[in-house]
């Protein structure tokens, strides 16, 4: 029942076309993550699904029902906003109960559902507080609580963790994954954060300039990116791209190789000077300037003995190469 189908959806603001011909079927219970550079239209797409904006083209179906012409209040979805958008004049309890009261549920039922959500999200001690008296993480949980009580066909999240600090973000990410396992409801999730995308998603949708670049499970996207854009967008530091003679030698216009697939190898083809080293604890990132080819990043496990100014020869296993022509993957 919680499927979301986008059929040729497009959106223009006046002259500016922000989204073009988006086709996407999201399965019941799927955790679908939208990623892409800033301004590519992620939020807009989410708002189209939510019914907060009207589509300029195409149809949207939710649970098999065409909702294109419906207002958001008739679509049976719920949304967690980046700013949380908690009602500042209502207590936590009233915030969570608002949707249920709007639906005119009997009082006992409202109380029961609010209590259940509060228990699940550990909000019980906070129920009578105002949002202004809560910490960022608590507000975030209230926002989630407010959306789960409606038992929506699908959840929409617009960068819900971006206002939290790093450790809280990691914690909440895990809770979200657990919540999804427990509820089994379809989730559509917009984020900037690659780690969130990789860890949470059943499927990732990479958007670029209003179009879908690639859709697939995280591993597929990482291991077999369909375009140069996807290849460089996922992964940090991003994939090294090599053009020119070295690429032609491997039968490609552009050659891609991930930093972790480069290694120090005296018999390797590329020799250069180490320009900069970043030691991150688990691993060490080195940036090596290799003449014509340009700067390559490599990732070595643990604390690798690399120093700026040192000459280094790099090699790789041919099986780890990605080959692109005209921006698209070949082979």
């Amino acid at each position: 029942m919680g499927t979301v189908e986008l059929d040729g959806v497009g959106k223009s603001f006046g002259e500016v076309e922000v989204l073009r011909d988006i086709r996407l079927d999201i399965a019941e219970g799927e955790f679908c993550v939208l990623v892409g550079p800033s301004g590519c239209g992620k939020s807009t797409l989410l708002r189209l699904i939510a019914g907060l904006e009207e589509v300029s083209a195409g149809r949207i179906r939710i649970a098999g029902r065409d909702v294109t012409a419906l207002e958001s209040y008739d679509r049976g979805l719920s949304m967690v906003f980046q700013s949380y958008a908690l009602y500042p004049h209502m207590s936590v309890r009233e915030n969570i109960a608002f949707a249920l009261e709007t639906a005119r549920l009997p009082r006992a039922e409202v109380a029961r559902k609010v209590a259940e959500a509060a228990r699940m999200l550990r909000l019980e001690p906070l129920l009578d507080r105002r949002p202004s008296d809560l910490s960022g993480g608590q507000r975030q949980r209230v926002a989630i609580g407010r959306s789960i009580v409606r038992e929506p066909a699908a959840f929409l999240f617009d960068e819900p963790l971006s206002n939290l600090d790093a450790s809280l973000r990691a914690e909440t990410r895990i809770e979200l994954a657990a919540l999804h396992r427990k509820l089994g409801t379809t989730m559509i999730y917009v984020t900037h954060d690659q780690v969130e995308a990789m860890t949470l998603a059943d499927r990732i949708v990479v958007l670029n300039a209003g179009r879908i670049e690639q859709v697939g499970p995280p591993a597929d996207l990482y291991e077999r990116p369909a375009t140069e854009f996807v290849a460089t967008f996922l992964g940090a530091p991003s994939m090294n791209l090599v053009r020119g003679a070295a690429a032609e030698a491997e039968g490609a216009e552009t050659l891609g190789i991930r930093p972790e697939h480069l290694r120090a190898d005296p018999s390797g083809p590329w020799t250069g000077t180490v320009a900069h080293v970043e030691y991150l604890g688990v691993d060490t990132i080195g940036y090596v300037d290799v003449g014509e080819i340009g700067r390559l990043a490599l990732r070595l496990p643990g604390r690798a003995p690399m120093v700026p100014g040192e000459t280094l020869t790099l090699g790789y296993d041919p099986g780890t190469l990605h080959r692109f022509r005209a921006g698209l993957r070949i082979g």
Binding site: S78, M79, A99, R146
Partner: peptide, 8 residues
């Protein structure tokens, strides 16, 4: 918008 999503 949140209220609209809440069905209001």
């Amino acid at each position: 918008e949140a209220a609209r999503m809440d069905g209001a």
